[in-house]
Nucleic acid binder design. Structure first.
Length: 571
RNA sequence: CGGAGUGUAGCGCAGUCUGGUAGCGCACCUGGUUUGGGACCAGGGGGUCGAAGGUUCGAGUCCUUUCACUCCGACCA
């Protein structure tokens, strides 16, 4: 491709809302263009080329693993989502609309319902199983707060795959196969990543794993062990039960006057105890289907923090939101002095499972200005669940090593669904005995457009993008310093043609611009290799440049074609 | 959802307080010079000032309404 014919609107200036490297460089490099609406982008020729590269890697590996590509209808009848029960559950991120006949439709962020519908119409026998179908199509998710360019857009390209099995064992076999396939995909793309245990979120189902590209700018906090390969999203991470070295306070079971002592810090100072022995009561409003909601009290140790996703799962709510003091008082609760003991009836309480039977605790008195000491939770009737967040320095449940936090970008997520969708949607098959059974399912996603952002987050420098070999829009960038110099231009043309003849994708900068401008564009766009034909051609020399580290080597001009071929074909 | 802020040329912004011919930089077009680190000179094109209503002889500017977008927050009772 000739640069002079390519639409690449590179800019010197950074858009004012861009903060992440990937967002800045993808826009400045002319890969994508903001559509003015939030979270919507056009892919320009360079961006589209990268997208196709990434998409092909995904497709090749999936096809190798026996998956089959399909393309589902973009617009989904809402009735399918009502059948599965997700129409309410998915919340506002689901874009809903009506056609001229007032029928409800959705633009699906994921297509379990649609795929199940496809399969239940055409698969009837165990002989047709297993089956793994996928598509790579646009998805829409009406994000609360789209940001970070392609990282969290509202419209995005995603690969979503679904597998169907006659038995749970076979589904688990496929789940493992997909884990291996995903690892191959991300490795081919040149990414450093980690597979972690995850929460299943609105998709539902049991065991799920996320594929996290490690990057400081990642939106997800992941917990990793320094001693073994344990890794988990903070939303699902577990730890060995904490022990406290400080002695338990030995106080009588009584009500104590504690004016203006309302925070954990205040209590620690007031009673001179380790926060481990305090009960922290966090009130949240849990939202359910059909607009129902209730206030729930989550009780954890003062030394812990509430993990909202775990808490939400514990009460099987769609979402948890904050409640203000007025709402608490209306419900008969006392902000600052709440506790699970002696509550007005009808308030739902969830207690962290490690507090079952705990004694010598201090908690609120459910009365302004009073706390209770010497409290025991022995025999307290409540829901006991794991609702706390693992903290840095906690102990790994698997090996006893030290756990620490790191940041990751979620680029893939695989789920063991079981019969979560096949059951309600009546997706059944006849087994060897002629008995109808719901199919065991798995579901597997990859954020294809997000991968572009993830690659740049992990591979860039202060000057611009550094694409990996498998993702680069072109393999080689040829820069002719001065196109009015006939010898320079002639060599450029010759090299350009030779590379094309070898099937190497090459970008040839034949523009009339000055040297500096062309180099800036090269560095910004980030094609892995370049040949600079300039001044030293009069001495019979050109430069071979590697974008990573901007390493420059002088090469004899009459050998450059051979050298370039060797370097590029070795990949 | 809570708080703060911004809407003026493709992009980045000034002008609004104090109403009076719509501006600057980048980008773009023409001509010329220049060619190893985002060049220079000269000339030029491009705007329903987010939208609607109001006040006024006159509104980008003042008033009302509305829409959109951005940023921060949405664990520590």
């Amino acid at each position: 491709m000739r640069f002079s014919r390519l639409l690449v609107p590179t800019t010197k200036e950074t858009p004012n809302d861009a903060t992440l490297a990937s967002h800045i460089f993808l826009i400045r490099g002319g890969f994508i263009q903001s559509v003015g609406g939030s979270g919507l982008y056009n892919f320009l020729p360079l961006g589209k080329r990268v997208l196709d590269k990434v998409r092909n890697v995904v497709k090749e590996e999936l096809d190798k693993a026996g998956c089959q590509e399909v393309s589902l209808a973009f617009v989904t009848p809402a009735s399918l989502w009502q059948e599965s029960g997700r129409f309410e559950k998915y919340g506002k991120e689901l874009l809903r609309f009506r056609d001229r006949k007032e029928n409800d439709f959705v633009l699906g962020p994921t297509h379990e319902e649609m795929m199940v519908n496809l399969v239940r119409q055409s698969v009837k026998s165990y002989k047709q199983l297993p089956l793994n179908l996928y598509q790579i199509n646009l998805k829409f998710r009406d994000e609360i707060r789209p940001r970070f360019g392609l990282m969290r857009g509202r419209e995005f390209l995603m690969k979503d795959g679904y597998s169907f099995h006659a038995s749970e064992e076979d589904m688990k076999r496929e789940f493992d196969l997909m884990e291996e396939t995903y690892k191959r995909i991300f490795t081919r793309l040149g990414l450093e990543f980690r597979v972690v245990e995850a929460d299943s979120g609105a998709i539902g189902g049991s065991g799920s794993k996320e594929f996290m590209v490690l990057a400081g700018s990642g939106e997800d906090t992941i917990v990793v062990c320094e001693g073994c390969d344990y890794g988990a999203n903070i939303e699902a991470a577990v730890r060995q039960e904490k022990v406290c070295e400080a002695p338990a306070p030995t106080l009588a079971n009584e009500k104590v006057h504690t004016p203006n002592v309302t925070t954990i810090e205040d209590l620690v100072a007031h009673f001179k105890v380790d926060p481990y022995y305090l009960l922290k009561t966090v009130a949240m409003r849990a939202l359910y289907d059909e607009g129902k909601s209730e206030i729930v009290l989550f009780v954890i140790r003062g030394s812990d923090t509430l993990q909202e996703v775990k808490a939400c799962n514990a009460v099987d709510a769609n979402e948890l939101i904050e409640v203000n003091d007025e709402e608490l008082e209306e419900a008969g609760l006392t902000p600052g002095y709440m506790s699970p003991m002696g509550l007005p009836s009808g308030v739902r309480v969830v207690i962290d499972e490690t507090l079952k039977g705990a004694s010598d605790m201090i908690c609120g008195g459910n009365e302004v200005g009073y706390h209770m000491t010497g409290v025991s939770l022995e025999g307290v009737d409540a829901l006991y669940e794991d609702i706390v967040a693992v903290q840095e320095g906690d102990t790994c449940a698997k090996c006893g090593g030290r756990l620490r936090y790191t940041k990751g970008i979620e680029v893939g997520h695989i789920f063991q669904l079981g019969t979560r969708y096949s059951q309600p949607l009546g997706c059944t098959f006849l087994d060897e005995n002629g008995k109808a059974k719901p199919m065991e399912m798995g579901t597997y996603g990859i954020g294809v457009s997000r991968l572009l952002a993830a690659i740049i987050e992990q591979h860039h420098d202060e000057k611009g993008c550094i694409w990996t070999e498998a993702s680069a829009p072109f393999r080689l960038h040829i820069i002719v310093s001065n196109i009015k110099d006939e010898a320079q231009l002639a060599l450029g043309e010759k090299l350009y043609e030779a590379m094309q003849a070898k099937g190497i994708e090459v970008l040839f900068d034949d523009r009339k611009d000055r040297f500096g401008a062309k180099m800036k564009d090269y560095e910004l766009i980030g094609i892995p290799h370049a040949v600079v034909i300039g001044k030293k051609l009069s001495d019979g020399l050109v430069e071979f440049v590697t974008r990573e580290g901007l390493v420059k080597e002088e090469v004899a001009a009459d050998e450059i074609i051979t050298v370039a071929e060797e370097r590029l074909c070795s990949y």
